[in-house]
Design a protein around this nucleic acid. Structure first.
Length: 348
DNA sequence: AAGGCGGGGCT
DNA sequence: AGCCCAGCCTT
């Protein structure tokens, strides 16, 4: 049996039942692929269900406001996916009459669709022999063939794409692609795979050379920077607060948050009171403030650690136009703000 | 070519 | 604490 047959045989026995495996409708496959980018199935699954429920067709998604899409995406991370999802839905609904492109090349032109996703949709929906190369495929191929080329540089990316393309079953690319990814997720796992039950145990180079835990090779280290976030949680006597949209580039673009003072070093109470933002906002206003959390809440992103304080500022009247506290949960926010709103006892 | 972009789970 | 996850976009 060749590589593809072994993989698809394994898949026919071990595959999980997942909602997007019951359809070849491009809209649903696209939705699932975007949600699952850099996201484990257990984390993405409830979001997929929510999106299918709220936006059953690409037209429903296109007709929504971006803030509605972000609200449903809240907590999933990599929010550019949601913004691009909405942009592409609008394009497909309005310019393509709701019909998805059916080739790798045309799919690749869409916002938010790169090599992996174009290959996935073209193969699963349109039976094109376009091989997917995701984290699972890198791991399986590097181990099985004992390939030590780093997977995060151009040379490795091209080498693995070429190999995956050579291996794909042209008669059944949809099944092949899904099978190899499921095999990577369930059998050829990153840590402690049970190679004793692997169908490739007699031919896997890494297993023979005892190098399973060294492959795939990935060189870059993401360096993490520390930042100090001070959120200003205003509470007025008429039960309003200030909530702002992050319109600038960077993390959490187009999500909402309390007014923020960002510093490179911790902000003590005196520095907080002396800060330009506090002064400008609270000039000529009487207020009382307290600190919600004495110890910083540490919010860890892949490339930043955010040491966060929430400052509670009670005022008679807001320094500028605000929103009703009861409306807070209708705005899309990051998980940090969302958790605070859930846990803090606002006087509603 | 390199770096930014989230949040959760596992070891 | 570090790595990984059905990657993509901008610079």
């Amino acid at each position: 049996m060749n590589f593809s047959s072994i993989i698809t045989n394994w898949y026919s026995i071990h595959k999980r039942s997942l909602p997007w495996r019951n359809t070849k409708e491009p809209y649903y496959i696209w939705l699932s692929e975007i949600i699952l980018q850099q996201t484990q199935i257990t984390q993405g699954l409830p979001y997929y269900e929510a999106f299918v429920n709220k936006f059953p067709t690409v037209f429903d998604l296109a007709n929504a406001k971006e803030s509605e899409v972000l609200k449903l995406w809240q907590g999933l991370g990599y929010y550019s996916r949601a913004r691009n999802l909405h942009k592409t839905a609008t394009y497909i609904a309005n310019e393509l009459n709701g019909t998805f492109p059916d080739t790798y090349t045309d799919l690749l032109k869409l916002k938010g669709i790169g090599d992996y996703t174009a290959s996935a949709i073209a193969s699963i929906c349109f039976n094109k022999p376009t091989a997917v190369v995701d984290g699972n495929v890198y791991r399986i191929l590097s181990r099985y063939y004992g390939i030590e080329t780093p997977i995060n540089y151009t040379e490795g990316i091209k080498e693995f794409k070429k190999l995956a393309t050579a291996l794909i079953d042209k008669n059944n690319p949809a099944e092949h692609n899904q099978a190899i990814m499921e095999f990577g997720a369930r059998q050829c796992k990153p840590k402690n795979p049970d190679c004793s039950v692997c169908p490739f145990k007699n031919s896997c180079i890494a297993l023979q050379k005892n190098s399973i835990d060294k492959l795939p090779v990935k060189l870059k280290k993401t360096k993490v920077s520390n930042k100090y976030y001070n959120f200003l949680v205003f509470i007025s006597t008429d039960k309003k607060t200030l909530f702002e949209k992050r319109t600038y580039k960077g993390i959490w673009q187009n999500l909402y948050q309390f007014p923020l003072i960002e510093t490179k070093t911790p902000l003590n109470i005196d520095a907080f009171k002396a800060s330009a933002k506090v002064k400008s906002l609270l000039n000529d206003i009487s207020f009382e403030f307290s600190l919600y959390n004495e110890k910083d809440i540490v919010h860890k992103l892949s490339h930043q650690h955010l040491y966060t304080k929430f400052w509670i500022i009670e005022v008679d009247k807001l320094p500028s136009e605000g929103i009703s506290i009861s409306e807070l949960t209708t705005f899309p926010t990051n998980i940090l703000i969302s958790n605070f709103i859930d846990e803090f006892k606002f006087p509603i």
